[in-house]
Design a protein around this nucleic acid. Structure first.
Lengths: 145, 145
DNA sequence: GGTGAAATCGTCGCCAA
DNA sequence: TTGGCGACGATTTCACC
């Protein structure tokens, strides 16, 4: 992981479909050499993959919310993770310090779906309370930097 | 935006570097036809772009946190957005309902950087209070759904 | 890390349904 | 309009230096 690797990563975050030749020109390396580095970064796990960034508003999709989760005493993180992964509406989730035990970023059709999702999450008793903040607008959105 | 477009979008979310030919084989379309659709999805705004998904732990990077922001009365959203965009540590931010006015997802080297960032954000008075929750671990992470 | 070569891919104009 | 075909230059991806 040298400065050139970092440059390559930054260029791919900016545009994942950039060609190796284009990257090579910017970092003064040949295309095969760039490919070797990218392959290494992928197998090494630094780059997990490449994805399309969607505009959910333009896609006619719905509502996003950040849901704080409060666990029952003695709840295992793995249980909650498994439960969250059952629901495709959960885009991302983190275990956090502070008031709540975890925060889930969810994408649902509308407020009714959110309500239903929250009920579902609480169903088996590992999540005993939630507190939701519905996203009104996205202020900042960067690659995944 | 027909079912084939949705399939194409899903395939690109899964792997943004897939070739048009590969996509075409999966949706029973020729490569040029797939390219036309992807071009249309991009100019139409449904697909904002393509990015690399990084593993920040593997990259030896630091701490992630969710910072709730409380604005001074009369603060404009655009002001705060501009302020947030000045700081590359802010990966994402949303204006939300509920207790806080906005939530920023930030990535910093360590807790000291977080402290410094928060001081910076509060400096001009539009953000009067913050409440941070440091991410202990990522529970769920899907493409960008 | 570079070079060269072969296979594949991106991209365009043109034509058919 | 939307999709397929053909063609050409660019790109990917090797083996080898």
């Amino acid at each position: 992981m040298d400065p050139i690797d970092r440059q390559i990563v930054a260029l791919l975050v900016e545009d994942a479909r950039r060609s190796y030749g284009d990257i090579g020109r910017r970092v003064a390396l040949s295309a095969p050499s760039v490919k070797r580095r990218v392959d290494r970064l992928r197998t090494g796990g630094a780059i997990e993959g490449f994805t399309a960034v969607l505009d959910h508003d333009a896609l006619g999709a719905g509502t996003e919310a950040l849901v704080e989760l409060f666990f029952a005493p003695g709840t295992l993180l793995d249980e909650v993770t498994a439960r969250l992964e059952e629901h495709p509406e959960v885009v991302e989730a983190w275990s956090v310090t502070g008031d709540a035990d975890a925060i889930a970023r969810v994408r649902v059709g509308d407020a009714r779906d959110l309500e239903r999702l929250i009920m579902e999450l609480q169903r088996d008793g590992s999540v005993v309370r939630t507190r939701s903040q519905i996203v009104l607008s996205r202020l900042v959105a960067r690659g995944r930097g």
